[in-house]
């Protein structure tokens, strides 16, 4: 009973804040509503017994991603009102398509059929005394090692991409090069010039 109430509470707040993300006039408010939505999603994960995912969501999405969004939004000063100009124009068609899809998905959800035996496949057996985080760790590093490595590569490529697209070597910027600094000797740094008197340099 309490679980059900909690579920509907979190779910309701989440959907409401998701709507606000899209419809809020102030972009900073949008991001803040996004953070609220993340928190509610984390709470739903807790309800499902997936405490690890809940924590990850809070740490990564709220702590890093959403805050980053906030900075970007505040720094770039984009006129979101202008971006939303066509919103009303496309709303009828877009809304109709969305409604059709929604109706169909609702129908599909109501008439959901599982394949025979899928319940056994789906039910993750919880070993006694093994908590969620530990179980995930075991799976990721054993059974799913291949895709774990692959996701590492994905992140690496993302990093390369960010560097490729943004890093610039600007001429004229003075940088510190420790290697060069240390390898300097007296000979390369000092030039002794003998100047005869009264001739100037």
């Amino acid at each position: 009973m309490i679980q059900a109430i909690a579920f509907y509470l979190f779910a309701g707040v989440m959907i409401a804040s998701a709507v606000m993300v899209v419809s809020a006039r102030n972009p900073v408010h949008s991001v803040l509503f996004l953070i609220l939505a993340f928190f509610n999603a984390a709470a739903l994960f807790v309800l499902l017994g997936a405490e690890f995912l809940a924590m990850i969501l809070v740490v990564v999405y709220v702590g890093a991603v959403a805050v980053l969004f906030l900075f970007v939004v505040m720094m770039l000063d984009i006129n979101f009102a202008l971006l939303r100009e066509g919103f009303m124009r496309y709303l009828p068609v877009g809304g109709a398509v969305g409604l059709v899809l929604l109706a169909e998905l609702v129908f599909v959800g109501m008439a959901w059929i599982d394949a025979a035996g899928s319940a056994q496949l789906r039910a993750a057996p919880m070993h006694g005394g093994v908590d969620n985080t530990r179980a995930l760790g075991r799976l990721i590093y054993t059974h799913y090692a291949l895709v774990f490595q692959a996701s590492g590569l994905v992140l690496l490529v993302a990093m390369i991409g960010a560097i490729v697209l943004t890093l610039r070597q600007r001429p004229g910027v003075k940088r510190q090069d420790i290697g060069r600094q240390l390898s300097r000797t007296r000979d390369t740094g000092v030039e002794i010039v003998k100047i005869k008197p009264r001739t100037g340099v």
């Binding site: 895709v147 490529v157 993302a158 991409g161 490729v164 943004t166």
Partner: peptide, 25 residues
């Protein structure tokens, strides 16, 4: 031969391609 490895392969490929498309920044 699994939806998960399918998705990761696809993303690895796509991410590299996105960057390449914008390579002349």
């Amino acid at each position: 031969s699994d939806l998960i490895s399918l998705y990761l392969g696809l993303e690895l490929q796509s991410l590299a391609l996105y960057v390449m498309a914008a390579f002349r920044r």
